[in-house]
């Protein structure tokens, strides 16, 4: 089960693809009918962290790309 992976802490070493993959499987699990209410809050918390991480990644990437493109145009 993908939920087992949730044990791993979310930090800067977590890859975007890895985070998205885990997020998708959490969402799939939450959307299934036999979701365990006990783990629900944990899952949601984990998913929120993953979403936050992905947002940061996207934001950072945008910033870096804008910087590089500006540099190319300046040259």
């Amino acid at each position: 089960m993908a939920t087992k992976k949730a044990a791993k802490a979310v930090d800067e070493t977590t890859g975007y693809a890895e985070a998205i993959g885990e997020l998708e499987s959490i969402l799939d699990e939450l959307e299934s009918n036999d979701v365990d209410v006990d783990v629900l809050a944990e899952h949601v918390k984990r998913a929120s962290e993953l979403i936050e991480l992905c947002r940061d990644r996207i934001g950072n990437a945008k910033l870096r790309i804008e910087e590089v493109v500006a540099q190319i145009d300046a040259d």
Binding site: L23, V44, I51, I58, K62
Partner: peptide, 19 residues
């Protein structure tokens, strides 16, 4: 990135419904 942000937003919306 825009695509990624879009799909992330979808995931986040789904999550809100499930919270």
């Amino acid at each position: 990135l825009n695509l990624a942000a879009q799909s992330l937003k979808g995931a986040s919306d789904r999550l809100r419904l499930l919270d």
